[in-house]
Simulated scan of single mutants.
Amino acid sequence: MPAISFQSVSKTYASSRQQKTQGGNGLRALDDVSFDIEEGEFFGLLGPNGAGKTSLISILAGLSRPTAGRVNVRGYDVHTHYAQARRQLGIVPQELVFDPFFNVRETLRIQSGYFGIANNEAWIDELLQSLGLADKATANLRQLSGGMKRRVLVAQALVHKPPVIVLDEPTAGVDVELRQTLWQFVARLNKQGSTVLLTTHYLEEAEALCNRIAMLKKGQLIALNRTSELLKSAASNVLRFKTDGNLPWALAQHARITGRIVQLPARDAGEVEQLLASLREAGVAIEDVEMRKADLEDVFIDLMAGEQTPLEVAR
């Protein structure tokens, strides 16, 4: 039995009154999405803004109903068996949501009470210690920084020891220390048997942590495979250099450019030679030239740009 099962899930949001008057059909955020996440997996759900990730997580959490399809959590339908399904889940949302009238420990005690858990102090203490919140236990949430509030959200999601953990952009806008602390703790829980579903725009995190990855584009599933297999689909090497010049159009349309840094796919030594020759002929001065292996970001960009056909869905 999978930890999470998305079965032909579609979601269409109602049109505005004007669109309805003009015969609009609404916004189709998800289009027949199906995949399973197995018990104990560290699974990544990736896609650009507007791809449907938030809609899928909202349906999983029971906050939104699908237009079609079903979602099960460890065998419980998220709507017909909401209470049982919700007990299986610990969800860390994107938004910072907190009650300003309580301190950190009180917040975690109240969250424990929502799940009928009494005498939860030992686990609360472990969460506070593991997430670097021990010295903030008596601090009011209004006094905490954004990063500390994010840690409290993680602790709230884990306070009832859920077997399935959903992390929706958990490290967005936080410092390096929190990222390291969070991933060390979550990786430990995963090794102990917890299933983890991660959405993130930091693709190096997904590459390092996730055993298997699904990618959404415009509400459709376009890739589902082991991380290692996705990486094999990319160009074997990437030529990386710095320049102040403008690339020839033929190269620029394939380049990933960040400020002065340019990265171009190159499958073999012969292609590297061709790229360097084209740059010389165009009079583009380059420096700090190096080669690196293609990473998950290269795969992601190619798929989202439509430069590759969607990868075969493998389970």
Rank of each mutant, 00 (worst) to 15 (best):
L30C: 04
H81Q: 15
R315T: 07
Q263R: 15
F300G: 07
Q192Y: 06
V154F: 02
A157P: 04
Q84N: 11
L247H: 02
E39K: 15
K20L: 11
L203E: 09
D295I: 13
W123E: 10
S5M: 06
V299K: 08
A294F: 08
Y82M: 04
L89F: 10
V159K: 10
T258I: 07
L96I: 14
T258A: 14
S8V: 07
G47D: 02
V78C: 11
A282R: 13
N103A: 09
A139C: 12
L30S: 06
G47M: 00
E106H: 05
G75I: 06
T54P: 06
T227S: 02
E229H: 12
F241K: 00
I91H: 01
L239R: 07
F185A: 05
G283N: 14
A83G: 01
A118W: 02
D288S: 15
L27D: 09
S55Y: 01
K218N: 12
S236L: 12
A172N: 14
G173M: 05
R179W: 05
Y13N: 04
V284D: 11
G90M: 02
Q19D: 15
E281S: 14
P66N: 13
G75Q: 07
D125Y: 10
S278M: 13
Y76D: 08
L30D: 08
D175W: 08
I91Q: 01
T138K: 14
Q111P: 08
A305K: 14
L198P: 06
V33W: 04
S112F: 08
Q263C: 13
G90N: 11
F98V: 03
K218G: 08
S64P: 04
G259W: 04
F35S: 00
Y82W: 07
E38A: 13
K11I: 02
I91E: 01
R179Q: 06
L153P: 00
T243L: 01
A122G: 12
A208S: 15
P163S: 12
N49L: 03
N211T: 07
N225M: 00
S145L: 10
L178P: 02
R280A: 15
E41W: 00
R151A: 12
A187V: 03
V284R: 06
E204L: 06
V9C: 07
F35E: 00
K20Y: 05
G40Q: 09
S8L: 10
V164W: 06
G113R: 14
N49S: 12
S55Q: 05
M291A: 10
V174D: 09
A266G: 13
D175F: 04
F115V: 03
E307L: 10
G283F: 10
G113D: 09
D135Y: 02
R315N: 10
P248W: 03
L128I: 08
P163V: 10
G306T: 04
A137P: 02
N211A: 10
F98S: 03
T243R: 06
